[in-house]
Computed example of a mutant assay.
Amino acid sequence: MRIGDMFTCCDETSGSQLEPVLELQEKSGELAALLQLLHHPPSPPLELPRDNKFDPVVYDPASIIPLPLLKPLLSTLADKYSLEEEIVDVLKVHLLAHAPAHSLEVYGFASLHGMEWEVSGASQYVLPMASYRFEEVKVIPTVAAYHNLVRLQDFRVKALRDLLLGEELFPHGYGKCQSHWEMSNEKWDRQRKALIGRIESATDVAGEMDALTDTFQDCKMCHKACTAAVEMLAYKCRRLPRRLDQLPNLY
């Protein structure tokens, strides 16, 4: 039943002298938002340019429907008033647009309402779970939803460590500096060993290693090798799974 069908309950032929009245339980703000949706269906939020295809999509904050208005529309009103699928799909895009700034809230809300695509989309922005207070974690509705985040973050930490340990300054001797290669290798190895124990799921491993590049300014070959190693590390890290739907099936 569409929202317009609701008003057929106000039967003008009933013989009553009273004005027909339809009682609604929604708050005035929610009804105003609902009517606005019906009369002026929303457009998707404005997508901002990305530096490369591996970066997550980011939207213009000014074009996003505020989360306090959006959540009741998606949680109850969309189903209760049978909003058209096209409108609901746009609302879900607005929900996901909030994920970078409100990752745990969006993840919990989407998990509660069975929005699998939005769950995966929000999962990439969730900070390491240990960084949240107990009260914040309560927005995650089920143990399974919590466990899925732990799985994703555990996979990323292990994968980032493996990539870092496997990246050499002079791979297979390529670009090897005969004068400084031993000293440069030691600096590279010392830097990554210092980093390895601090890696979290959102750590920019390549960015951390890039701090070493300036220490090779006195040698063009070592500087070039370090720059290439950092760029290769960044490329490999960008290709790692960031979302739940990208996790290997057996993990």
Rank of each mutant, 00 (worst) to 15 (best):
L212Q: 09
D218R: 04
N185F: 05
T213I: 04
K220F: 12
A194S: 10
D214A: 01
G197Y: 15
G207D: 14
K224R: 05
F216D: 10
D210H: 01
L233G: 01
C222H: 04
M232L: 00
D189L: 11
M209L: 15
K187M: 13
A202W: 12
T227H: 08
D189W: 10
G207L: 13
V205F: 08
D218L: 04
T227V: 14
A202I: 11
A211V: 10
A229V: 01
A194W: 07
T227Q: 13
R198N: 15
C219F: 04
R198T: 14
D204Q: 07
D189R: 10
L195G: 03
N185I: 02
W188A: 02
L212K: 08
A234M: 03
K187S: 10
D218I: 02
L195R: 04
M232E: 01
A206Y: 05
G197F: 13
C219N: 03
V230G: 04
W188N: 02
A206P: 08
C219L: 02
K220L: 11
L195E: 04
H223A: 01
D214E: 05
A234E: 03
T203Q: 12
C226P: 10
Q191M: 07
A229R: 02
C222F: 09
A229N: 02
K193E: 11
R198L: 15
A211M: 11
D210V: 00
A202G: 12
T227L: 09
R198P: 11
A211C: 13
T213W: 03
A234K: 05
L195T: 04
M221P: 03
Q217P: 09
R192N: 10
D210M: 00
A211K: 14
C219E: 03
R190T: 08
A229D: 00
A228K: 15
A229F: 04
C219P: 05
E231K: 03
D214N: 02
R190S: 09
V205R: 08
E186G: 03
A225C: 09
A202S: 15
R192G: 10
I199M: 04
C226L: 12
M221T: 07
L212F: 10
E200V: 08
A225S: 13
T227C: 08
K193S: 04
V230R: 04
A229M: 04
E186L: 03
N185P: 08
E208M: 05
K224Q: 06
E231T: 02
V205G: 10
E231M: 01
E208L: 00
A234H: 03
C219R: 00
T227E: 12
A228Y: 13
I199Q: 05
M209C: 09
E186M: 02
I196K: 06
Q217A: 13
T227N: 10
M209P: 11
R198S: 15
Q217M: 13
A228R: 15
C226Q: 13
C219S: 02
T213V: 05
A234Y: 02
T203S: 15
R198C: 14
A206T: 06
A206W: 08
A194G: 08
